[in-house]
Structures are given as structure tokens and as C-alpha cells.
Design a protein around this nucleic acid. Structure first.
Lengths: 240, 240
DNA sequence: GGAATAGTGTCTATAAGACAGTATGCA
DNA sequence: TGCATACTGTCTTATAGACACTATTCC
């Protein structure tokens, strides 16, 4: 950064959330990958994955690209968070002026498990409850991303992004519980989800349980996960 | 724009909303100032006020600066809207790549009236219901700002930003009605506002009415207008 | 049948909306 | 006194939450 004194650099970073248990058979929590900085400022501290914006690349593509470079995954959900650009972001001040356009993403948990060994050098996953020393203002950025995630999970349909293709209502409820950090009434949760039409029953059930097997559901793709308002009029490449 | 081929320009623009009646004694509507473009692309079309970000200037300061240059006013409310950066924003494509960080602002209506003659050349105010041909993707940006404003007025306390120091509940209700585009029940509106504690009675009443004089209220500054979450941890200069 | 979880019914508290009705200041 | 608007009371409906209850599968 800051090779051209007097210029303002433009970077894109991404807060990538995955859901996974702290220990086996423990309740799941939120985790995110960070990159260790190998040069000043903040050498040795951890930072959000990201990098400069390419000249022929959309902002969202840049976020998805760094996500892929960090986790070898596709985002299940991706949304712009905020543009951070105060003068005090770098200890160098205006000499190292960087405006970061930050995205936040959700990745499916079972995919995280299968690609666990695919993490490049200098990348580690951390629980959001136990973060290391962070570079720049990345602590505030992560807090803000968490705040947005927790708000959004209550009024939109993004929780399924943490799950696989089919899932039980108990699994979906556990996602909500992990994100919100509190337990939810199974009866009321079921009613809320059913009345929102966000899932459809597959007709199948879970096999191999030692008790009554729960129904499996699939996400209802005919209902938009979030209302982005007029932003949906902007071009968006479909992601597989 | 685009003086350095291969570089990505960074601009800050602002959607500035004011409330004023279409004709005298008509119900108020939303208006905003636009700037006529005097060079290609989109020469002759209208665009949002804005310009390049200065090296030693915070994003929010840049938005407030262009607001002042356009309207000679201080923003009563100012919030970041979104960063727009798709490749197709300019007809030149990647050759004229501009990432715009857009803010939206509310200005007080009586101040607009007093500074009506202070508009610089090439600036005109338009009703949001009757916009002219717009440059770039500024039509989508304005639509999105309107969408945010209408959502936010329902669950936060920003409507008073359109009003002066003191106001009646009927005036505050008329602001909500103008923003939302529908009429509201005076009784229910009163209860909602009172239970939210966003206003406090001044003890004074309006003078010179030919009917029962309504109470005057003042905005309750001890309650935050909006919950910005962890963003409040970022440095912010107080605006007078 | 017992254990364990899936799934249902029902009551209560709270808030939003519709709308009738009362209060007050001035001509 | 009548008019116009300020302000209050009350009923209905929708929704969230608490929690008791029934259902189904495997052992």
C-alpha cells in the first residue's frame, strides 16, 4: 500500500462467516478466516482477507475472488457491508490513505469441513468470541458485520446459507440460535418459518435416528432471500 | 474523470432530500438538487452533486462539503448509502472506471426556503416524482436512497431533520405522510411518537390559529436518532 | 412400554390500525 | 353557539412468546 504518495488506494475486503462447533458435539458458533500480515504496519497482526480492486473487475467479483483465494469456496451469501475511509485508519495517516469497500459473506458449513486443508499459508480460522490482535480498524469492521448478520437473520432468509442442500427445522433453528446467541422456542420457530414460506418439505426424512425421524426441508428458491430494493436493478452475475 | 488510464477514480456523491410543497398550500413532497453536466459523457443530463475525494478528507466530510457547495446548507442528517462500482457505469467501460461512494442527506425545509437564491449555476431542484434524464446509474441510486429513506423513517427518528427547532405533532405527521406517500391516523401516530420518547413538549403553543392551538414539541436529543451499531465507534466530527 | 425428539394447541402480552367520541380556542 | 382542529378512549386484529400437550419412531 501507499506506493504512490498522494494517491488514495482502493481495496476490497471481505468478512467471511462460517458456522462450526468449537469442539465436537458442542453447540456451533461463528468462525471467520483471517490473514496474518507479514509487513508493516501492524506486522504480525491479523487482517481481513482482501486486496486492491482490479481495473476490470466488479466490486462484488473482487470480494468473491478474495473469498475464493482464502477459503477455496464459493459464497453462499454475499452483501456489501460499508465503505471505510477515515483518515486515521493507517498509522501513517494521509500518506497511506486506503479506502476499503468491505463485503460480508456466509459460506456453507459442510463445505468448510471438506476444504479444511485447502487453507493457504498465513490463513487461520478464529471464533468471533476469541479474536486475535487485529490490524487497522478491522475489529470495528468485524463487529459491524456481526451486528448486520444478527439483525438480518431476524428479518430475512439468509440462515440457510450456512446449511447444505436439505436440512431439518431443528438444524435451521440451531443456526439461528448460534447467530443470535440465545435459544429459541422450537414450536414458535417452526410456525414462524412455515408462515414465511422460506422452506418447502422434501417429503424425505432423516434416516438412522434412534427416535422419531424429522422431516427434511429444502430452501424455497422462488422467494427472494432478502429485499435489496432498487439495488436489484443493478447488474449481477449469477453465482453457481 | 479518467485522466490516468488504467486507474480507478474514487468519487463521493450525495443524494440531498428536502421537503417542500409543489405549489403553495399543496401537500409537501420530496425534492432534491441535481447538477447539469457540461461535458461528455451524458452532457446535458442531470447528475448527483459530488466530486473526487480529497486526500486529507474523510468520506463523510466530502459528502458534507459537496452538499454545502450545492445548497449552502448544513446536513440535518447524513448517512452513507452504498458504494457503486460496476464496470458498466460509464459508457466508456473500464477506460473511465469510477467507484462512487454515495451518501444521502436530509436538510431542513425552512432553511431551504431562506437560501433559495443561493443555488449556484447549473443546479436545479426537482421533485422525486418528476425527475429529468439522469447521467450514469444515478436513477438507480436515487431510487435506492428513496427506498432507504422510506424504510428508515418507519423505524428510526430522522423525520424531525426536515423540520425546524420546534414543531407540532401534525407537522411531524405531515413529514411522515410526505415521505411514505400515504396518510396516517393522527391518533395512532400521536401514540407511537409519544411512546417512542423522540419528542418532548416545550409547554408553548402555536399562536394565531383560528381554532384550538396545538402544542409545540422539541426533538429529544438525549435519544439517539438511529442505531448505527458498532459504526458509532468510528471517529465522527460533530456537525453544528 | 420407555426414551427421545418431532410436531401441535392454546393462552397471554403487546402492538398496530380503525374509528367514535370529547376538548378547546376563536369567530 | 358553531366550527375546526387538537386530543382521548376503545375495539379489533395480527404477532411474538411461554408452555402444556400429543405423535412417532427406535430400542
Amino acid at each position: 500500500m501507499g506506493e504512490h504518495p498522494g494517491a488514495i488506494a482502493l481495496a476490497v475486503s471481505t468478512v467471511i462467516f462460517a458456522l462450526r462447533p468449537d469442539q465436537p458435539d458442542a453447540p456451533a458458533g461463528l468462525w471467520l478466516p483471517l490473514v496474518r500480515r507479514i509487513r508493516p504496519p501492524y506486522e504480525g497482526d491479523w487482517a481481513l482477507p482482501g486486496g486492491p480492486l482490479m481495473i476490470d473487475e466488479d466490486l462484488e467479483d473482487a470480494a468473491a475472488r478474495t473469498l475464493g483465494a482464502t477459503t477455496a469456496l464459493e459464497p453462499a451469501y454475499l452483501e456489501q457491508l460499508y465503505a471505510f475511509g477515515t483518515l486515521d485508519r493507517s498509522p501513517e495517516g494521509a500518506k497511506d490513505r486506503v479506502v476499503s469497500i468491505v463485503y460480508w459473506a456466509l459460506v456453507s458449513s459442510d463445505e468448510v469441513a471438506t476444504s479444511a486443508g485447502a487453507n493457504p499459508e498465513n490463513v487461520s480460522w478464529f471464533s468471533v468470541d476469541d479474536l486475535p490482535d487485529l490490524a487497522f480498524d478491522h475489529d470495528v469492521i468485524i463487529e459491524y458485520a456481526l451486528w448486520r448478520l444478527r439483525n438480518k437473520v431476524e428479518y430475512s432468509r439468509i440462515a440457510h446459507a450456512f446449511l447444505g442442500d436439505t436440512f431439518t427445522l431443528a438444524e435451521l433453528r440451531e443456526v439461528h440460535e448460534a447467530v443470535l446467541g440465545r435459544s429459541l422456542d422450537p414450536a414458535n420457530f417452526r410456525r414462524q418459518i412455515e408462515s414465511s414460506n422460506s422452506v418447502v418439505p422434501t417429503g424425505k426424512r432423516v434416516l438412522g435416528t434412534s427416535y422419531r425421524p424429522p422431516r427434511l426441508y429444502r430452501y424455497n428458491t422462488s422467494v427472494a432471500p432478502v429485499d435489496r430494493g432498487p439495488l436489484d436493478r443493478l447488474p449481477r452475475k449469477p453465482r453457481p
